[in-house]
Amino acid sequence: MAELLQYLFAGLTSGAIYALAGLGFAIIYNASHVINFAQGEFIMIGGMTTATLAAAGVPVPLAALAAMAVTMLVGVALEKFAIEPARDSDVVTIIIITIGASIFLRGAAQVVWDKEFHALAPFSGETPIRVLGATLMPQSLWVVGVAMAMIAGLWWFFNRTLFGKAMLATSFNRLAAQLMGIGVKKVLLVSFALSAALGAVGGIVVTPIAFTNYEAGIMLGLKGFSAAVLGGLGNGMGAVVGGLIVGIAEALGAGYVSSAYKDAIAFVIILVVLFFMPNGLFGKKGVDRV
């Protein structure tokens, strides 16, 4: 029992990070039908920037804010200089551009930083909390709490603000959105800024647990992509649930089967689900009467 609880804690923690990454994929996908494979690099840049600034003596909250700003800037620059000039190209072409961008960002990170692992001290110490025989690190609470706050904030943005609704409307019907006077260029730019911010936040809270280096974004990005696909691409709630499923599945797999198969187990589950539900768990088509 304590063992199961222990694995669930671990799974929820990584699942929360995957959920944030998955939401990043979903937001950009909704705005442009592009899958942004540089999403993992947003996570890496957020973590690396915070770790570096904190090591240089900058207070962690300030370092985190600066890291978010830097990552959002990278996201906006990516959209402006790599995606926007190719906006008349095929979606597949643009997706390949994002793969190129992710390789470029990893290379740039090697130049700006190095190939070493960077660490960040946990935000609230390292005294484990005992829960029913299992131990819970305070940083895990940070991860889950921050992820929940981000999800709530996104929900508010997309359901309660006019610009959020305009972004949703653009994803449902681009032509009609243009005819309403919604600037689809601005929607695309904001979607990259938002996704970068989500990635950065994930990177910031996970670094005290997992360390980070220039390659840290590859696996996190892939897991986030899996989360988004599992939940149904473009569905926000789907991305969150998908992230938690991927996180918990790999934690259970690592605990009960073998940690060597940790990543494989997550991907196998996704393959099985997609085999029977090609649109993902929540990827049903909306009600549409003609």
Partner: peptide
Amino acid sequence: QVFAPLSVEDNLRLGAY
């Protein structure tokens, strides 16, 4: 070309974007 998943009211609100 209504925004099918959005409410009627949201559709109208977006008309006045």
